[in-house]
Nucleic acid binder design. Structure first.
Lengths: 205, 205
DNA sequence: GAAAAGGTTGAACGGGCGTTCTAAATAGAT
DNA sequence: ATCTATTTAGAACGCCCGTTCAACCTTTTC
């Protein structure tokens, strides 16, 4: 069973550079601009070498997604358990770079079945995590789960982030700045309210 | 000055068929699958003829956008002046076909400057319309514009629609159905509240 | 019915794509 | 120092792309 004999030293670092270059291209020119040749040129290697590390372009996309998602899932888990879960969530969701990447991957997934399956799994896991957390948190924020149930709140935060980040990145004049400022204030008020309730609870008990 | 001599009869209908086919391809296989040859094949003509009607692919995308946007701007204006503006807005925003098309055009615009400029102009006009309307409406719905100002509400509705429609269309298991159901109920409650206030106002005055 | 404009086609251009094949260089193990 | 698996490059395959060009058909106009 001990078959893998010798992996070389520079190889892992080359995988990383290929993935980095792929992300760069996706952000600058869109997922459609990703090709074995464009990636190879960015890294400074030949096109076939890209296929040596990632046999098909699909696998390259999947690898990019897995690396990103791995970090993001961790960070989302930390955010949801932090002292100010909503603020941490919103900060992560409204990160321009991460959101832009996710939008590209989402778009690419729409006509790449292998990637689509991977995205679907991650989306489900992340959402489940968020829904579980919101089940506890909504009450603490003083939000009525009957009126604003977890699935709606989670989708709204995600969607709002998509919308404002996209408009801001593209430079569309849709008052995205004001929306972000208002959301920051709203998050601040909700965190303050939660803090207040927790203080009262601690003293009352 | 009277130079244009003879436009033919079938020509306008052919433009329409080309635009229809382009939309179809965008929805099924993504904007990247749109090419003079794929569109031509769908219509049953030769590729050069597509270029006869739309000299470049950019112009084809812009034409698709203009036709869609024209209809949608009209419908949004009507929605905002209807008896239940919020419900009409939400219904339009959560239309799967329209949203999917808009997402594709948005993605395509990210690396097609001509298209990007066009999208930007339309986005600005629509958003301005919505912000104007919300300036009046928020109060009627009993929403405090200090806490939820028009730019935030508009971006949230747009983003929420993107999010749930995308997840539902792709089949991602993110509780999108529950989010939609909750949003429908929320819209219903808000419309009822507005109706109540308007009744009281009418009697009171 | 002839002239002219509008509409349509087939072939071709240069270029990028994913991928594969072959063969060379290289680095680690002995 | 040699062996061997790993890593790399070059060339080539067939395919699709946007676009152009010259030629043809068809409709309108007179």
């Amino acid at each position: 069973m001990a078959e893998g004999r010798r992996p070389r030293a520079a190889t892992e670092e080359k995988r990383k550079r290929i993935l980095d270059a792929t992300e760069e291209i996706m952000l600058k020119d869109g997922y459609a601009a990703v090709s074995s040749r464009s990636v190879a040129a960015a890294v400074g290697i030949g096109a076939p070498l890209v296929h040596y590390y990632f046999p098909t372009i699909d696998e390259l996309f999947v690898a990019v997604l897995r690396r990103r998602a791995g970090r993001n899932v961790e960070r989302m888990a930390e955010a949801l358990m932090s002292a100010e879960p909503l603020r941490a969530w919103w900060e992560q969701a409204s990160d321009p770079r991460g959101t832009a990447m996710f939008v590209e991957l989402l778009a690419a997934a729409n006509h790449r079945p292998a990637l689509k399956a991977e995205v679907g799994g991650i989306a489900r896991d992340v959402r489940r995590m968020q829904l579980d957390a919101l089940g506890e948190l909504l009450g603490e924020y003083g939000i009525d789960p009957e009126q604003l149930p977890p699935p709606l709140v989670a989708a709204a935060i995600q969607g709002l982030a998509f919308s404002v980040v996209q408009d801001q990145a593209a430079g569309y004049d849709t008052a995205a700045d004001e929306a972000i400022a208002a959301m920051d204030r709203l998050v601040g008020r909700l965190e303050a309210r939660r803090q207040l309730r927790s203080d009262r609870g601690a003293r009352g008990a």
